[in-house]
Amino acid sequence: MNPQLNYKIQGFVVLMAVLLTGCVTSRIEQSRETVTGIETDEVMVVMGRASYNDREVEKSFTDCIMNELSGGPRPITLISQNEFQDRLYPWFEPRTAPGTTEHLGELFSNPGIRDRMDEAGIRYLAWIDGDTVTTDEGGSMSCTLSTFGGGCFGVRYWEQDASYEASIWDVQNLNTAGQISADARGTSYIAGLVVPIPILASPGNAACKGLANQLRDFIIGDS
């Protein structure tokens, strides 16, 4: 292929990617209560805090956090939520999971639970809570399709707020090591100019990446 044409295509792709990505503003906050660190034979579990109402952390969000933590230059060894729940069934189901480190201590008084956690080398439990909600939406767009052709006209927008918090429990010392919160907000648009052109902001993704990076620094930063 002509190198000049190749550069033009690459430039067009980059330009489109920039143009079609909406802006997201995010804020990460951390509060540390104890010194942390993780050995090579120790692992962490990332758990989504479940609830029985319609607002709870999405599975895709905890999967995103796990992907970020297990990859990159400083990966953390993780056990998946499903494997952890199976190993310790029925004590970490939505109905029975401990809400505080004091409850976790009480849970350890039951025979076998502490041993099962030690066998797996679990050092930290990171409980993720929060969700992404649409806070505002508006505009209108209509699409028509007929034998003479079709198209979309108008503009629609929606603003989303992704707010998540990770509470990190030190299983060995039975205390809360700290909390990290991530808040990201962004507005997405779809402009109908015959062809619908989406300009999508992804605050959930920004919150995931921000929270995962901070969580990694929090856990291995002091070791």
Partner: peptide, 9 residues
């Protein structure tokens, strides 16, 4: 799905 063995006394 998995059939976990409960960790109960």
């Amino acid at each position: 799905g998995t059939v976990p063995t409960p960790l109960v006394q």
